[in-house]
Design a protein around this nucleic acid. Structure first.
Ligand SMILES: NC(=O)c1ccc[n+]([C@@H]2O[C@H](COP(=O)([O-])OP(=O)(O)OC[C@H]3O[C@@H](n4cnc5c(N)ncnc54)[C@H](O)[C@@H]3O)[C@@H](O)[C@H]2O)c1
Ligand SMILES: NC(=O)c1ccc[n+]([C@@H]2O[C@H](COP(=O)([O-])OP(=O)(O)OC[C@H]3O[C@@H](n4cnc5c(N)ncnc54)[C@H](O)[C@@H]3O)[C@@H](O)[C@H]2O)c1
Lengths: 220, 220
DNA sequence: CGGACTATGTGAATTCATTCACAAGTTACT
DNA sequence: AGTAACTTGTGAATGAATTCACATAGTCCG
């Protein structure tokens, strides 16, 4: 009854898809749609109905045969699974181009991620306000993270200093890190580290274009 | 000799890993390291040596037994595979928080992605300069893309308008799109569309944190 | 120059993820 | 109540990606 705290291992891709389902369900809820079938849900994200059902089945059975899934309930259920039913305290390190874009990003707030600390080493920025948040000196990183019980840190500093920053973050006891610097960071295995690598996506596109061309080339 | 234009299908993840290899090799090259083994290369990105060799083997054999891979040559070889040996013309649509952060991102330039057009619909922005690029009126999107032979468009507008923009982009004949709006866009299947979804990564972290807790709980 | 050592490249084995296919539950309509 | 139409939930089958394991080929040093 209480979340099927099963031991089965959930695949990376299932987790990613749960995020997608959550996004779609939020929209459907706003449109006042009450139920949705796996078929419809799949169509929204270009997946197969079987995949949707399989993904959900890892966590229990939320649907009604013959009818589909109750939108709001399923959305809330996924929120619980993903941990979006609580507030996560997030700190941003480095408030340059990308850091400041992210600080004000509404979507994070909406999903329960509340950025309420910012660190930088630039004297001109320290003490100033970014979207209502005071920029702290990077020298106070460890105490700051500890005192404010920060759960997750976003790294938006140059790649050259990212590892030093991460070491401090880990020492401060934070165990969730989202890294935007294009470098592979080393963390103890009890720390969750994810990387956001935008070049990678662009390179995926160029790869696909080049490969597609060899097909189109014969055509034009 | 000329690229083993083989017919075998390359997996998504292999392509992603090629980006990682490229990144590591660039660094090694700068450090003046001449050769590297699959074992070392794997260590840099927390992969297995077998995986590295398998990935590379899809495209030919670049290594020397007993020695490893020649850094510069392999880097260039991967650049060719990924299409980084040419200049890609990129346009940005929407120059708000995230759009303007990306416009100046050096890493893109370095990998051959040159953002040289910007479109927006905000009268205050149109005509102004962003990092040396003139902001064009979104009304001129289609002609602009065509006239400048844009290869790839980055979408950084609100989710609500993203689909309309994409339709125009597709009509203009662009076939590579990188989308930052949190919505699933529909494109014809000859168009390469990739999505950058930052909430997804954060949600992956929160999922992992929640799940890790239930393990650590029994353990400590 | 020869032998010990190192590391690649790749089929085969294995592990992991997706899709199939259908029994079983629910609705909706007559 | 009976039945036709849906749709879930899930083992079994298929398909894909990773890892294993080793023959093969080169290095490097004395
Ligand atoms: N700009 C982008 O669009 C973009 C996109 C993806 C990834 N990234 C990556 O994100 C990181 C930041 O990029 P950016 O463009 O915002 O750079 P930026 O130079 O605009 O910002 C970096 C910020 O980090 C601060 N900083 C530098 N060293 C620091 C230290 N030791 N401690 C604390 N703060 C420090 C700087 O003062 C600055 O505010 C880089 O690693 C970059 O590769 C940037
Ligand atoms: N801010 C972030 O950190 C962040 C992160 C990830 C994804 N995103 C997504 O990127 C998109 C942009 O986010 P943002 O924070 O930069 O928003 P923003 O409001 O700062 O910028 C949006 C820009 O798009 C322009 N715009 C609006 N409608 C347009 C139209 N019809 N044609 C052309 N231009 C138009 C606006 O004038 C503005 O300059 C959103 O979809 C958002 O969800 C933002």
């Amino acid at each position: 009854m209480a979340a099927d705290d099963g031991k089965k291992k959930i695949s990376e891709s299932t987790i990613q898809r749960l995020s997608l389902y959550y996004r779609v369900l939020s929209i459907l809820e706003k449109e006042n749609i009450k139920t949705i079938s796996s078929k419809e849900l799949a169509k929204h994200e270009k997946l197969t109905p079987a995949q949707v059902r399989k993904d959900l089945s890892f966590f229990g059975s939320f649907g009604t045969r013959g009818l589909g899934y109750p939108v709001t309930e399923l959305k809330n259920r996924i929120a619980t699974i993903l941990g979006l039913d609580r507030e996560w305290k997030v700190a941003m390190v480095g408030v340059g181009n990308i850091g400041s874009a992210l600080v004000g990003y509404k979507e994070f707030q909406r999903h329960g991620f509340s950025i309420n600390m910012i660190f930088d080493n630039d004297q001109r920025k320290i003490g100033s306000n970014h979207k209502g948040i005071l920029v702290s000196d990077i020298a106070n990183l460890k105490e700051g993270l500890r005192e404010n019980n920060i759960d997750i840190v976003i790294i938006a500093v140059p790649a050259t200093v990212a590892q030093y920053i991460v070491d401090d973050i880990v020492e401060a006891g934070v165990s969730g890190i989202l890294n935007f610097a294009p470098i592979n960071l080393k963390v103890p295995e009890n720390v969750i580290l994810r990387n956001e690598n935008m070049s990678m996506e662009l390179e995926h596109i160029s790869f696909s274009l080049v490969n597609r061309e060899s097909i189109t080339a014969t055509k034009e």
